[in-house]
C-alpha cells in the first residue's frame, strides 16, 4: 500500500497525495481517540504491528488451551470437568474472535496459522510452563487469566475497532475464568493437607511467570512507546503489573495461602508495590523456545493441523461439488 522509502528518510516525503490525505485522516482519528476501521488508510507499520499483536494474542489463546485440556479427562468431579471443558472451549472461541480481527488487516488465518506452526510467531510464554497438578487449573485461572484480564481490559479501547470489539467479548467471557480458578484454589486451601500443599505449590510456580506476562520493565520495552502513541496500548507494562500485584496481594489472604515473595509490600512513599526481582533471563529463554514445554505445545498444534488436513479438504471438495450442482440446476 504505502510506498516504501528505501533511503529510510522522512516517510511523508514519498506519500502520494491520496496517501497523505489518508494519513492526515488517520492522525486525526487517533488524535480524537476515535477508532480506525479495516478499510481506512493506515500506516503500514500500524497494520504490521497490530497484525503481529492480535495474531500473537490469538495464538496464545489457542496454545493456552493445552495446559488445561490436559486436565479435562482427569478433573476430580463432574462439575469441575464441565467447567473446565467450557473454559477451554471458550479459549478456542477467543482465539477465533482474535483471528477474525487480525484477518481484517489483510492476512488470512491460514497464513497466521502457518507462522505459528513454523515457530516464527510468538505466543504468551506462560503457556510454555507445564500444568502438572490439578491445582494448576486454579493457579492458571486466578493468576494467568487474572493477569491476562488486567492486560486486556484496557485493550477493549484499542484504536483498532475490530480488536477492541473482540476484546470486549473476550473480557466478558474471561471474568468467569478467573473466578473459577480462584474457587478451585479456595476449595483446595480449605481441604486436606495434601490439597492445601498442592494449591500452595501451584501458586509458587505460577506467581513469577504471571508477573512476567506484562512484559519487560518499561525501560526495556521498545515497542511500547509507539503502541501508546497509536492508542493501542493505554498503560505501560509496569503500571499494569503494579495494579495486578496489588490485587493478588489482597486476594491471596482470602485463600489463606501465600505468594512466594516474602518482601512484597506497598511502599507508601513511592505509592508502589515492591515485588521481588523477576528473572528476565528466564523469560528470554522461554520466549526463544527453551521453556519446559515449548516443543511439546507446538508439536501438538502441528499434529492436529496435519491430521485434520484430509477433513478440511473433504469439506472444501464437498462445498465445491455442491456449488457446481447449484450452478447446473
Amino acid at each position: 500500500m504505502a510506498a516504501q522509502n528505501e533511503s529510510g528518510g522522512n516517510l511523508s516525503a514519498v506519500l502520494s497525495p491520496e496517501e497523505q490525505a489518508g494519513k492526515d485522516r488517520f492522525d486525526a482519528i487517533i488524535a480524537e481517540d476515535s477508532r480506525i476501521e479495516p478499510r481506512d488508510w493506515m500506516p503500514e507499520a500500524y497494520r504490521k504491528s497490530l497484525t503481529r499483536q492480535i495474531s500473537q494474542h490469538a495464538h496464545s489463546e489457542i496454545i493456552g488451551m493445552q495446559p488445561e485440556a490436559n486436565w479435562i479427562t482427569r478433573a476430580p468431579s463432574l462439575k469441575r470437568k464441565a467447567i473446565l471443558m467450557a473454559k477451554v472451549q471458550d479459549e478456542a472461541g477467543h482465539g477465533l474472535y482474535l483471528y477474525s480481527a487480525a484477518e481484517t488487516l489483510g492476512t488470512p488465518r491460514d497464513v497466521l496459522n502457518e507462522q505459528l506452526l513454523s515457530g516464527r510467531a510468538k505466543y504468551s510464554s506462560i503457556f510454555n510452563y507445564p500444568a502438572r497438578s490439578w491445582a494448576d487449573m486454579g493457579a492458571i485461572g486466578w493468576l494467568v487469566d487474572g493477569a491476562a484480564i488486567a492486560n486486556q481490559v484496557p485493550l477493549c479501547r484499542a484504536s483498532y475497532g475490530p480488536y477492541g470489539r473482540a476484546m470486549v467479548r473476550v473480557c466478558k467471557e474471561e471474568s468467569f475464568h478467573q473466578r473459577q480458578g480462584f474457587e478451585i484454589l479456595l476449595e483446595l486451601a480449605q481441604g486436606t493437607e495434601a490439597q492445601k500443599k498442592m494449591a500452595q505449590d501451584a501458586i509458587n510456580r505460577f506467581y513469577a511467570p504471571a508477573l512476567m506476562m506484562f512484559g519487560p520493565p518499561d525501560g526495556d520495552s521498545p515497542n511500547s512507546k509507539q503502541s501508546m502513541e497509536w492508542r493501542v496500548k493505554r498503560f505501560s507494562n509496569d503500571e499494569l503489573r503494579q495494579r495486578f500485584v496489588g490485587m493478588i496481594a489482597e486476594q491471596v489472604k482470602v485463600l489463606g495461602l501465600t505468594l512466594p515473595d516474602p518482601g512484597l509490600h506497598f511502599d507508601e512513599e513511592s505509592g508502589k508495590w515492591i515485588h521481588k526481582e523477576l528473572d528476565w533471563e528466564e523469560l528470554t529463554e522461554v520466549i526463544s523456545g527453551n521453556g519446559p514445554v515449548n516443543s511439546q505445545r507446538l508439536e501438538r498444534r502441528r499434529e492436529a493441523h496435519a491430521e485434520g488436513a484430509w477433513v478440511r479438504e473433504a469439506a472444501a471438495a464437498y462445498a465445491a461439488k455442491m456449488a457446481r450442482k447449484t450452478e447446473v440446476a
Partner: peptide, 11 residues
C-alpha cells in the same frame, strides 16, 4: 482461496 488449502472461506 489460494491453492495451499482446502482453506475455508470467511463468513
Amino acid at each position: 482461496m489460494s491453492e495451499i488449502n482446502s482453506g475455508w472461506p470467511l463468513w
